[in-house]
């Protein structure tokens, strides 16, 4: 009895084989530890190119930890260790030779709390651009305008680019953070609950912004808002936490996962009975 059950579980906790062919980002037996505690069980997951991939699951199941593992932001956390492989475009990012600066330029991150620097709106984007070798001031100017337009913020801020970014509303700050990440022309954008600190209207604006990124870059978005995951994402991975250890329960096309989940746990969660 246990064997068929096992294969069935395998089938749905790794992504469909068709996906991994064109996978942009690929986790292979990735496990995450804090000190001696394992926060994420060995997970295998493929994230397809230029689509929107959402990660859902209850609090504490390791969603943020996994997201941070995808551009090695975990490195700064004392006692955090990542085992297994995280493969970007066929290359393991956890090798000694990985250039972290380049990795993070290619794989950007948006946090739950908007975190603009204590600088002017303009300099928030100017500073990282300069850091990445944009020496020409006029080219940086152009770039700044372009990305601020892309996030739909231009008309709101064009007259106060030199004012502190802290004077913006929360939703505007979050869009500025997206603009700042887009300025570096990343291929993957990781977003950790990008709307959960925002009011419903700002949240809708940021949500539309994410949808607009589809086909241009790969977006991995963690969200507690199941409706949002369903509206915006092409694929969804559902995580659960067992004995304080997160594990992947089911992964697949969003519509399928919400309408015809294979696992009972998934069905209970997406129907709001658990979690």
């Amino acid at each position: 009895m246990t064997t068929p059950n096992f294969t069935r579980q395998q089938e749905h906790t790794t992504c469909p084989a068709a996906l991994s062919v064109n996978a942009h980002l690929h986790l292979e037996d990735t496990a995450i530890f804090y000190g001696g505690h394992q926060a994420l069980r060995e997970t295998t997951l493929s994230i397809p190119r230029k689509l929107i991939f959402s990660i859902i699951g209850p609090s504490g199941c390791g969603k943020s930890s996994m997201l941070r593992a995808m551009n090695r932001l975990n490195d700064r956390i004392e006692g955090c260790a990542v085992r297994g492989r995280v493969v970007l475009n066929g290359e393991d990012i956890y090798t000694a030779g990985t250039n972290l600066i380049q990795l993070r330029r290619r794989v950007g991150m948006i946090f739950q709390q908007p975190n603009p620097f204590p600088l002017s709106i303009e300099n928030n984007i100017d500073l990282p651009l300069r850091e990445h070798g944009w020496h020409s001031r006029s080219k940086r100017r152009e770039r700044i305008e372009k990305v601020i337009r892309e996030v739909g913020l231009w008309n709101e801020v064009k007259d106060r680019l030199r004012q502190s970014a802290f004077r913006l509303s929360g939703g505007q700050q979050q869009r500025l953070c997206v603009a700042r990440a887009l300025a570096l022309d990343p291929e993957v954008l990781l977003m950790d609950e990008p709307c959960s600190a925002l009011d419903p209207l700002s949240s809708a604006v940021v949500e539309d912004l994410i949808v607009g990124l589809r086909d241009r870059l790969t977006v991995v978005v963690v969200t507690h808002n199941l409706g949002q995951a369903r509206r915006i994402s092409d694929y969804t991975a559902f995580f659960w936490s067992r004995d304080h250890m997160g594990c992947l329960v089911e992964c697949g096309e969003t519509e399928r996962l919400f309408t015809a989940p294979v696992r009972d746990l998934t069905a209970a969660y997406v129907n709001g009975q658990r979690g």
């Binding site: 932001l73 700064r76 950007g108 946090f111 620097f117 204590p118 600088l119 990440a181």
Partner: peptide
């Protein structure tokens, strides 16, 4: 100084020295 400034700098591929000099020390 909020940890989110450092995380922001890291996530944008800034070196820790640059984040320190341009963001953390002035704050």
């Amino acid at each position: 100084v909020p940890e989110s400034y450092r995380a922001g700098g890291d996530a944008l591929g800034m070196t820790r020295t640059r984040t320190l000099l341009r963001i953390v020390l002035p704050s």
